[in-house]
Amino acid sequence: MDVVFPADTALIVVDLQPDFMPGGALACFEGDAIVPGIARLLAARRYQTVVATQDWHPPAHASFAAQHAGQVPFQVIALHGQPQTLWPDHCVQGTPGAELDPRVDWSCADLILRKGTRAQVDSYSAFRENHGPDGTRPSTGLAGWLRERGIAQVHVCGLARDVCVLWTAQDAQAEGFGVRFLWELTRPVSPAGDAPTREALQQAGIAIG
């Protein structure tokens, strides 16, 4: 029988959306491989608290390469004084590619957190947006929401392993939560991101498994 986690442990499923699947606008390497496992995990109701994040960009988002003359996807520019990877247009509000993956039953999700909604601020982490024009990383409010529910531990999975899932894990730890990174239920933008991601997790003391 599947183990049911304690009530103080939440699952965060990051950006499991069609645009991050093979054939999508910003396809992650083998992104679709994790869908069955996450679907089974949610169906088993092993977590009493489940959060799903959803990249939800306005059409002219500052992280899109198309908004910067002469730039192409995956180049890095300075945005608000910080490095910003430019992405293909993806997860545009209201488009099919921005929906949560329809192969998963999301009815057990207690919160669907839309991020990246501000045109001039990218948002990788579930806990904090990237740096904005004022130089700060605004809170999404998730940390407070989890604390109000008595959550002390979070498990993270989803896409992409080397960007949004990693940032979510790091910020969860910075907010004082215990963190477990469900490696097999994540995939990277590119396999080249795996070694640096694993190193970053190990250096931070974040559990992998």
Rank of each mutant, 00 (worst) to 15 (best):
P196S: 11
A44D: 15
P83N: 02
Q71A: 13
R46I: 02
P36F: 08
V154I: 14
P188E: 05
P73G: 03
M21R: 06
V121G: 09
H90A: 07
L185P: 02
T117Y: 07
T117N: 02
G144I: 05
D105R: 10
V189S: 08
P36C: 08
A52W: 03
V50A: 06
A69N: 03
L185E: 12
P18K: 09
Q170P: 00
S190P: 00
F29D: 14
A143C: 03
C108G: 12
P88A: 07
A109L: 09
D8A: 13
L42M: 10
A27W: 11
R187D: 05
D110H: 15
V189M: 12
I112K: 12
G209A: 12
V154G: 06
P18N: 09
T49P: 03
Q93H: 09
S139T: 13
D89M: 10
H61R: 08
G31E: 03
R45F: 02
W167M: 11
A119R: 14
Q71R: 15
I208C: 14
A33M: 08
A143P: 05
W183Y: 14
L111R: 15
R103N: 13
A192F: 05
L142H: 01
R198P: 00
R40Q: 15
W145H: 02
A25Q: 11
E148W: 00
A66N: 00
C28F: 05
F74Y: 15
F20D: 09
F181V: 07
D110W: 04
R198D: 14
I206V: 13
V14F: 09
V165G: 01
V76I: 11
L142K: 00
P22G: 11
V72E: 13
V179G: 10
V165M: 05
P36A: 09
W106K: 07
L182S: 01
T136D: 04
V154R: 04
C164P: 01
A143S: 13
L166C: 01
L100I: 04
D101T: 03
A7F: 11
D171N: 07
A44E: 15
L113F: 11
Q75G: 08
